[in-house]
Amino acid sequence: MLVALAAVPILIALAVKLSSRPATPGRGPLFLDRITQNGLFVAVTALVVCVPLFLPLTVGVVAGDTIAGEANLGTLRYLLLAPSGRIRLLLVKYAGAVAFCCAATATVAAAGALAGVVFFPIGPVTLLSGDTIGVGESVLRSLLIAAYITVSLLGLSAIGLLISTFTDVPVGAMAATIVLSVVSQVLDNLPQLEWLHPWLFSHHWLGFADLLRQPVSWTSFGENALLQAGYIAVCGALAYGKFTTKDILS
C-alpha cells in the first residue's frame, strides 16, 4: 500500500513533466501549475490529491483490519491467551494503525520531494500569502503539513478500530471505515448541514493550507488536533467497552 501511495507523487511529477501544455493557474489541484517552476511543490500537490481518498482508503484498510483481521484468521484467541490483557492488545493495535498513518503521509511527502528533486528545478517557494521562503523553511513546512495530515487521520483510525471490534469480517470493517470517511466529506460539503460541520472528523482535513500562509496560522492545527483527540477518546472508550465485554470465539 505504501508503494501505491508513493506512486501518486511520482505519477503527478511524470504527468506534468511529459505534458507539453503548461497547466493553467487556478485549475486542477493546488499548486499543480507551479510544479514546473519548483519541484518542492510536488510533495504538497501529492498530499492535496491523496487526502480526500487515497490516504483514508489505506488507513481504513489498516484500521479496519486491526481486530477483525485477527478474529478472521482465528488468531485473536491465541493472542489473548498470553497474559497481556485485552486493553493492551487494543492499545498495541491502535499504535500500529497510528504508525501506519505516519508512514503513509511520510511516504507521500518523501516520494514527492524525491520526484520533485529529480525532475524539476528547486528554488524558493511561494506561499499562499505571496511571500517567498527559502528551501530549508519550505522543507520544514512540508514536514509540518505531513504532521498535520497524520493527526487528521488519527480520528479515522480510531473509528476503524472501533468498527473492527464489532465484527469478525475484516472486509466489512474496512469498507465501513472508508465509507464513513467519504460520507463525512460529503456532509462537509452540504451547506444545509453547516451546524454539523465542526463535528465531522474530516472537517479540517484540507485545513493544512493554513500552514502555507505567512505568518503560519495555527488555529486550524489546534482545532484539528482537539477534534481528532475527541474522536479518539469517544471511539477508544466505545472500543474498550465492546472489546472487553466481547466473547472471543475465534
Partner: peptide, 16 residues
Amino acid sequence: RARQRWLPALLIPLAL
C-alpha cells in the same frame, strides 16, 4: 462487571 466496562463509553461522550 460488563456494565462497568461500558462506563467509559458512556462517560467520555458525556464529558465532551
